[in-house]
Every structure is written in structure tokens, then in C-alpha cells.
Amino acid sequence: MIEFRNVKKDFSGRPVLRGFNLHVRKGETMCLVGTSGAGKSVTLKHMVRLLKASSGEILIDGEDIQPLEGKALSSMREKFGYLFQSAALLQWLTVYENVALPLRERTKLSDGEIDRKVRHVLDRVNMSHALGKLPADISGGMQKRAGLARAVVSEPDILLYDEPTSGLDPVTSRTIDTLIHDLQSDLGVTSVVVTHDMISALTISDRIAMLHQGTVLEVSPPREFLASQNEVVRDFLDSQCISRNFFEEFPERILK
């Protein structure tokens, strides 16, 4: 579905991705974890061509997206839903208008259809009560949920999450995790989640990729990831007090 082939990227001569290889399979949820500056967000931005690789190929459904321009780029991007770290809602539009925006701008749906879809999606993320509020008037968690609603309203094939739980309290974070998990199982989309919250990564993902200094250090399912002997991975897990028995110790009710 998404494939990075020896992708290199540098900013003003400073390398960020150095020979990056990654394959995200259709329908799975892949978490990208790593320390700050490991290249997680940059990887995500390459997938939607917000950034252009210095060299290498990025294939989406087998098509190299590097040379795309104009209409082809637009239709490639239509496959994606993207939840930004800051939610990136348009501040002068209400929650309802923000979620309706992609449909209004991109599709030829009637107002009634748009209204039905928007209300449905907002209901899914438990935001029905805040339709008419402006982003500035609601909390960070609600903004993230509204952003999530906007990302899924156009029914994308791939959902990209850039640090969905950062800046949120642990309880709200788990709510977001649950939402991501539910959407995944309901819609059957391919998801890529960038996070450094290991609890999120372990609970929602099918596979976890550890990024370190612009390369992929290890890609494995959560349980194997926990058992990894790689020093960098161990340091990363230990620094968040994640024990090897995480799945045995973590209370199930928090997840579901």
C-alpha cells in the first residue's frame, strides 16, 4: 500500500532521512515511534507529498508519487485523511463547517447529503454537542476529535495520524486511542500513526516501526517489539516504564 524505497531527505544539507525503507500493508495500523528528530513526522509528510524526497521512491498503491503535480497530486491526496498534531482546524469556521469543508470543496454532494455525513461522523467522535462552536472555544481533546472527524468524513483509504495524543491528558489520550482503534475496525482503512506514546503504540497498532536517526531500526508486531533486544528500543521502552509484561499488566477496560 505504502512503500518507501531508499528515501533520502535533507534540509539545507542536514540529513533527516538516510536510506529509509518501509512497507505499510493494506488494512494494517502501523505505528512509527522514536525520539524527537528521528524523522517520524517527516516520513508522514512524505506520504502526502507535503515534502518531496531528495532521492528514492515513495509508492502509494504501486505508483511513485514523487513526480505528481496538479490534478494527479490532488487525486492521490484524496486517498488520505490526515490528523495533524495541532488538529489544524480552520479557526474562523465552526466545528461543523470544518468537518463539512472537504465535502463542500471536493465533492458535488448536495447540502443534505453533506449534512447527513457530517452529523454522522461527528456523532462517531462524540462531538454532536459542539457543532456550532469555534475551534478556539473547545478543548485540545475536542479539537483533535473534530480533526479526526474531518479526516475521516471523506472516507479515505489511508489515515495518517501525527501525534494524535500529544499534549493531552492520559485519560483523553486513551479515548483518542479507542477512537482510532474503532475507526480502524469499522472502516478497514490503512493507518499510519506517529507517536512517542508507547501505550498508544502498543494498544492500537498491528506493527510498530522504530525510527532512529533517519532510518528504520526495527519493524515488528507489539509483542515482538516488547521483547526486542535492540538497545535503542529497550532504552525507549524503559524510559517510559513499559515493562515486558505490558499486555498482562495493562487493564483491559481502559482499551475497550
Partner: peptide, 8 residues
């Protein structure tokens, strides 16, 4: 769209 913003 909420009635209020339409009025505006």
C-alpha cells in the same frame, strides 16, 4: 450549517 451563522 447552523441557523445562526446562516443569518450572519
Amino acid at each position: 450549517m447552523s441557523e445562526n451563522s446562516r443569518k450572519k
